[in-house]
């Protein structure tokens, strides 16, 4: 099963990362899921695919009552992001899923109905969790054409979906890293190939560099902290993207 790690806590406001399942089959890409809690309210970010549901559910239930999961946030439409939707709905048919308006009629193929989805407009929107206002930040074409990240101004955490993702080799898969240059090598190929638009990349860098970020949490790989966040934005802004090798 995955491990639930508290990465931020201030009173009743908490971020939990659900990470690293030692039993994950190697044909499935590893993914990080995050749970934001404020008081009794919560938001599960990129809840993951069907196949990882058991590991996510079991890890989550060690820290939080899964029946209280009433809101999901899907950065985009990929199966490793949201194909477990039907299972979360089994536990609570009232679950709401925040997702780009672009995918609101595609993702119901994974489950849910008209009432399930809350469409995020292209410009983004605020999402209230307990008394905290989180912000859905546009990240279109990085990599999906309807894509959002989530910023928490209180915790100063940016959930960055596939941006910042790294495919870590065994033995180098800690949740945090120390050596930026060493780590970024595992992110380079992924970003060159998966991030399709240079203009979208520059817009995103511009947008997030105005935010006060202490932690940047991607859906794959390790979490960036402190100065590593600024270094990543700088590195990414100079990276040539949308390239097929060979």
């Amino acid at each position: 099963m995955k491990t639930a790690r508290v990465i931020y806590e201030d009173g009743k406001h908490k971020w939990i990362a659900l990470v690293r399942d030692p039993n994950r089959p190697d044909y499935l890409i590893d993914s990080n899921e995050y749970l934001v809690i404020d008081d009794d309210d919560s938001l599960l970010l990129d809840p993951g695919g069907n196949e990882v549901f058991p590991a996510v559910f079991s890890a989550l239930s060690t820290e939080f009552d899964p029946r209280k999961i009433t809101k999901l946030f899907a950065s985009h439409q990929d199966p490793d992001i949201i194909s477990s939707l039907a299972l979360w709905l089994e536990f609570n048919p009232q679950v709401k899923c925040y997702i780009s308006w672009l995918w609101a009629s595609f993702v119901p193929h994974f489950g849910g109905n008209k009432e399930t989805f809350i469409s995020i407009p292209d410009g983004g929107m605020d999402i209230m969790i307990g008394s905290q206002r989180l912000q859905a930040i546009p990240a279109h074409y990085l990599h999906s054409s309807g894509n959002f990240h989530l910023y928490d101004p209180k915790a100063k955490i940016l959930f960055s979906g596939d941006v910042g993702a790294a495919l870590l080799p065994p033995g180098e898969d800690d949740l945090f890293f120390e050596d930026f240059d060493r780590h970024i090598r595992h992110a380079e190929g992924f970003h060159r190939r998966w991030m399709g638009s240079d203009k979208a990349k520059r817009d995103w860098c511009q947008r997030v560099s105005q935010l006060d970020i202490e932690m940047m949490c991607p859906q794959h790989g390790a979490i960036y902290r402190g100065d590593q966040v600024r270094r990543f934005i700088d590195w990414f802004s100079h990276l040539e993207v949308g390239i097929v090798k060979g």
């Binding site: 058991p54 079991s58 239930s61």
Partner: peptide, 27 residues
């Protein structure tokens, strides 16, 4: 869905497992 839930039951313990047990029975 049941197959996945069964795996979730096996991996969970404590209140998580009881929750799935109860849920699967009803379901």
């Amino acid at each position: 869905l049941n197959r996945v839930l069964e795996r979730a039951r096996k991996e969970s313990s404590g209140s998580g497992r009881s929750l799935i047990d109860e849920f699967m029975r009803t379901r």
